[in-house]
C-alpha cells in the first residue's frame, strides 16, 4: 500500500509554476527519495504533503483516503530551512514542539529523556539553544521530528550541516526507523546518500516529474551495457581479437598496465569478450559499467533541460 499518493498536483505562484501535473506514490515502509536540482519544486511538493500550502489542482491521499488536517500529527517533518528559538532552553523547547504534535507533557518528557540519552546529549537539556553549535541544534531538531513516532517522516536535506560521524549516526537511525515500519520521504540533491538508503525515487526538474521508480530498475534501465577491464599485456594483440567483434570506446596505457572500455550490443555476451581476452593478456579486473545515480541525475536533467530549450 502507498502511504502517500499525490495525484496530478499543480501549484502556481505569482510569477512561476512551481509544480506541473506531478504525481507520486510513496510506498509504505520504504525510503522514498525525492530528487531534483535546486528550485525544481521539491520543497513545494513537501509543503503540500505537510498541508502548509494547498495545491491549486490535484488531490492527496494518505493511506488510501483523502488527506485530512489531523494527519499532520502522523507526519514528522524536518524542513531544509530549520531553526529553533534561540533564547529558549533546549529541553523546554523540545517539550513545546512535541506538545504541538499532540504528545502530552509526560509522554514528551519520557520520550525526550530516552533520545537525549541515546544521542548522549543530556547535558544540553537546560542550555539555551544559542549556546549550541549548528550540528548540535540539528541533532535536537532530528529528535523533535521523530519523537511522536509518526507513520510518515519527511526529511528535507537532513544531512546538511552534519559532520561525517553524525551523518553516519543519523543515517543509521533513519534505517532503523525504516526497519520498524516507518515510511520515509527523503528529499535531497546529494546522490551518494540516495544510492545508500533509498528504495524508490522520483526525480523532479523544472516543476515536472521526469523519472520515477525503484532504484535498481532505474539503474538497470540506464546501464549502458559497456564493460571496463584492466589488464597487463600487449594492446595490439587485444586490438586484433576484440575489434573484430566489439567496439572499443576507450583505451589508456600506463607503463604496461592498460585500461580498456568496451561496448557490447544487446546480443553479445560479456563472457565471450572475457574469453577472447583471457587468451592474450593477464586480466586484473573486469566489470560492467553501472551508472551512478549522480550520472543518471545529470544525464536526465540535462536532456530534460535541452528539451525545454
Amino acid at each position: 500500500m502507498n502511504i502517500i499518493e499525490a495525484k496530478s498536483i499543480h501549484k502556481q505562484f505569482a510569477n512561476h509554476k512551481a509544480l506541473k501535473n506531478v504525481s507520486i506514490d510513496v510506498p509504505e515502509g520504504k525510503i522514498f527519495g525525492l530528487l531534483g536540482p535546486n528550485g525544481a519544486g521539491k520543497t513545494t511538493l513537501i509543503r503540500i504533503v505537510n498541508q502548509i500550502t494547498a495545491p491549486d489542482i490535484g488531490e492527496l491521499m494518505f493511506k488510501g483516503r483523502a488527506l485530512t488536517p489531523d494527519d499532520v500529527l502522523n507526519i514528522g517533518y524536518l524542513p531544509e530551512e530549520r531553526g529553533l528559538y534561540k533564547k529558549m532552553k533546549v529541553g523546554e523547547q523540545a517539550i513545546y514542539l512535541a506538545r504541538l504534535k499532540g504528545l502530552s507533557r509526560n509522554d514528551a518528557v519520557s520520550k525526550l529523556k530516552f533520545w537525549f540519552e541515546k544521542f548522549e546529549i543530556e547535558p544540553w537539556w537546560n542550555k539555551k539553544v544559542q549556546e549550541l553549535s549548528k550540528g548540535m541544534q540539528q541533532k535536537v531538531q532530528f529528535i523533535v521530528t521523530i519523537l511522536h513516532e509518526p507513520e510518515l517522516l519527511i526529511f528535507d536535506e537532513p544531512f546538511s550541516g552534519f559532520d561525517p560521524i553524525n551523518t553516519k549516526l543519523l543515517k543509521n537511525e533513519i534505517l532503523t526507523l525504516k526497519e520498524k515500519g516507518t515510511s520515509i520521504i527523503f528529499s535531497t540533491h546529494n546522490m551518494g546518500s540516495v544510492e545508500e538508503i533509498c528504495d524508490e525515487i522520483a526525480l523532479i526538474n523544472q516543476s515536472e516529474k521526469i523519472l520515477d521508480g525503484k532504484v535498481e530498475d532505474i539503474k538497470a534501465k540506464f546501464s549502458s551495457n559497456s564493460y571496463e577491464c584492466n589488464y597487463i599485456g600487449d594492446y595490439n594483440k587485444i586490438q586484433q581479437v576484440v575489434e573484430s567483434d566489439f567496439e572499443i570506446i576507450k583505451h589508456i596505457q600506463n607503463h604496461n598496465t592498460h585500461y580498456l572500455k568496451v561496448s557490447l550490443t544487446d546480443k553479445q555476451k560479456d563472457n565471450a569478450l572475457l574469453a577472447k581476452m583471457m587468451n592474450e593478456v593477464t586480466i586484473s579486473s573486469f566489470n560492467q559499467v553501472v551508472p551512478t545515480m549522480d550520472d543518471i541525475f545529470i544525464k536526465v536533467v540535462n536532456e530534460d533541460s535541452v528539451k525545454e530549450i
Binding site: I75, Y77, P79, E81, Y85, L97, L100, V144
Partner: peptide, 13 residues
C-alpha cells in the same frame, strides 16, 4: 529569522 517557523507550521495552522 530563526527558521523555526516551518517546523511549527507543520504542526499547527
Amino acid at each position: 529569522t530563526s527558521r523555526i517557523i516551518e517546523i511549527i507550521i507543520s504542526s499547527v495552522k
